[in-house]
Design a protein around this nucleic acid. Structure first.
Length: 535
RNA sequence: CGGAGUGUGGCUCAGUCUGGUAGAGCACCGCGUUCGGGACGCGGGGGUCGCAGGUUCGAAUCCUGCCACUCCGACCA
């Protein structure tokens, strides 16, 4: 601090340290990560529980993050040659009956519409028995069936292929247990659906989407992930192959942050999606589908959040630079405001991360210290505080959210206004980079690759009782060779892992050329698989 | 749907055992003093104590039933 406010500085230091958030990630040596997560969602103004069970209200700041995700990903989707469209929320029940495995996988968790009118019966508003639907409608849990139905009409010739469609929509799955952003009854997502002539093309499309998710996650969300193929038991119902990106949260658990499925011809057979080839034969299409959801926001929170609240990567921060004027109801306020307005205007003309800088002058009639802490909690990447002396001397005082404190003390920097405006794009890019590197270092440091037997894995993670979970949670993942068992042998593996609350995450895309013995069976290994606890 | 726990102003909770007509801190509103930083004083608004019955002169408190939420399992983006 070179701006010489010695007296106040001293007072500040003498105060006990306070964090901006009401709950820390750890309390003593006990993990309070779930409580911390709930606190951050609420206190960073991201979302709140709604009157409807398992559903959330996404508040403006949280929705702003989703809009940023939409905008930046939509550009990438279009670059893949995929067009947006919109399909109905309601899907006829019979559509699900067409693909047996698919309906089996989803049957237990669908919202069903059975009536089309309400009636006041004995003073109680209820579904009108006379208004029962002939065929119940399902509130979409995913749209393979209704989009497949459209594809079957749209696709006639090999010249219509590939067909690539995406929709941004809400879906409903009647989950038993819900958590804001991570698993809610209704959530927002994008779902891409493609149809192709050959297996190779469809698989290429599946992997292209997966790679897009990986790149998006790492460069936009600053969230490092491992892309790979899900084992057989974790496949999407009806899919031939399911791929995922897996992110590691700060408690060491895995979050499946995006999925991409190669569906083979099972859906096209069920829904008669056929094309006439150049030789005149009728052939079934090979299809793919892929999606990411508002769960990504939960991932960002649990990847970047700290004990002061959220830390948003600048690429998805609705406001990247927030200017808090120190107003005191005195004549010099006007100068401070004018100076702040000029600063915001100048920032808006600059570009950072390929887009105009999003700056905000916070003029809310509220104590400036409260405003500052609110923006710290919300995770605005750069918070600028401007007082009369800054205005008079043409200086800017600011703090970086990615590096808020020096020890217990909040650290701020001062710069001339013009230098700050010039430096802003670089600062935002640096914050984006720092957040990624921090998370990447943590991911890399928490994957163990030296365990070769199940006993070692079991010992490492430890048997989990409910009591123990808190302290044994920060184990990260194990990457080990396995023989890729299928069927009952795979079920057996799943059961063994279950005793340790472990699951198979995915087999990473980049594999070595040789493998040790299978960690489960001791048979020759054929690939490496990630093992960990998950959300 | 099984196991455990919890429901008291926006948030965190006390009060429940031993019934007497609702409290604290933070947040919010007003006035004042402060103020280069999460300040303080005084005053104020806000709760049918999850819901419905019951016992009682009287119920947040006791009894019965129900509901909701949280955590753990089954399910899952």
């Amino acid at each position: 601090m070179s701006n010489g406010f010695d007296v106040a500085e001293r007072d500040f230091k003498e105060r006990p340290m306070q964090r901006a958030l009401s709950v820390s990630r750890m309390t003593g040596n006990k993990s309070t990560f779930p409580d911390w997560y709930q606190a951050i969602v609420r206190e960073a103004d991201m979302a709140e529980v709604s009157p409807v069970r398992g559903s959330m209200i996404i508040k403006p700041w949280g929705y702003g993050v989703w809009e940023r995700i939409q905008q930046t990903m939509d550009r990438r989707i279009k670059e893949m040659g995929v067009d947006n469209a919109y399909f109905p929320l309601f899907i006829p029940l019979s559509f699900f009956a067409k693909e047996a495995e698919h309906v089996e996988g989803f049957a237990k968790e669908m919202a069903v519409v059975t009536h089309h009118r309400l009636k006041n019966i004995d003073g109680k508003l209820q579904p009108d028995p006379d208004a029962k639907l002939e065929e119940p409608l399902i509130v979409r849990p995913t749209s393979e069936t209704i989009i497949g139905d459209a594809f079957s009409r749209w696709i006639k010739s090999y010249r219509d292929l590939p067909m690539k469609i995406n929709q941004w929509a809400n879906v409903v799955r009647w989950e038993m247990r819900t958590r804001l952003f991570l698993r809610t009854s209704e959530f927002l997502w994008q779902e891409g659906h493609t149809a192709h002539v050959s297996r190779e093309d469809a698989l290429a499309s599946t992997l292209q989407a997966l790679e897009m998710y990986r790149e998006f996650s790492e460069t936009v969300l600053a969230m490092p992930v491992i892309a790979g193929e899900k084992p057989e038991n974790e496949r999407f119902p009806g899919a031939e192959a399911t791929y995922s990106i897996e992110a590691m949260m700060q408690d060491g658990k895995a979050l499946q942050a995006g999925t991409s499925h190669y569906l083979g011809t099972s859906f096209s057979r069920a829904q008669n999606i056929r094309y006439q080839s150049d030789s005149g034969d009728l052939e079934f299409c090979h299809t793919s589908s892929w999606g990411v959801s508002t769960r990504l926001i939960g991932g960002v929170i649990m990847t970047h959040g700290d004990d002061d609240g959220l830390r948003l990567p600048p690429a998805i921060a609705p406001r990247q630079i927030v200017v808090v004027p120190m107003l005191r109801g005195k004549p010099e306020d006007a100068e401070v405001l004018a100076f702040a307005e000029g600063l915001v205007k100048a920032l808006h003309e600059k570009f950072a991360l390929g887009e105009p800088i999003r700056a905000l002058l916070d003029t809310k009639d509220q104590k400036s210290s409260d405003k500052r802490w609110n923006w710290v909690r919300r995770g605005a990447p750069i918070i600028v505080e401007l007082g009369p002396r800054d205005a008079a001397s043409g200086q800017v005082t600011f703090m970086r959210r990615d590096n808020l404190r020096d020890g217990d003390k909040v650290q701020s920097q001062a710069m001339s206004r013009d230098d700050f405006v010039d430096a802003a794009p670089g600062l935002l890019a640096a914050i984006q980079q720092t957040l990624f590197e921090e998370a990447k270092a943590s991911l890399d440091a928490n994957i163990r690759g030296d365990l070769t037997t199940f006993d070692q894995v079991a010992e490492y993670f430890g048997k989990v009782s409910d009591e123990e979970e808190e302290t044994s949670a920060f184990k990260g993942w194990v990457r080990a060779s396995w023989s890729r068992p299928t069927g009952e042998a795979l079920d057996a593996v799943e059961q063994r892992l279950k005793g340790f609350k472990l699951t198979l995450r995915n087999a990473p895309m980049n594999q070595p050329s040789s493998f040790g013995p299978c960690v489960f069976t001791g048979e020759p290994g054929v690939e490496e698989i990630l093992i960990g606890r998950s959300y």
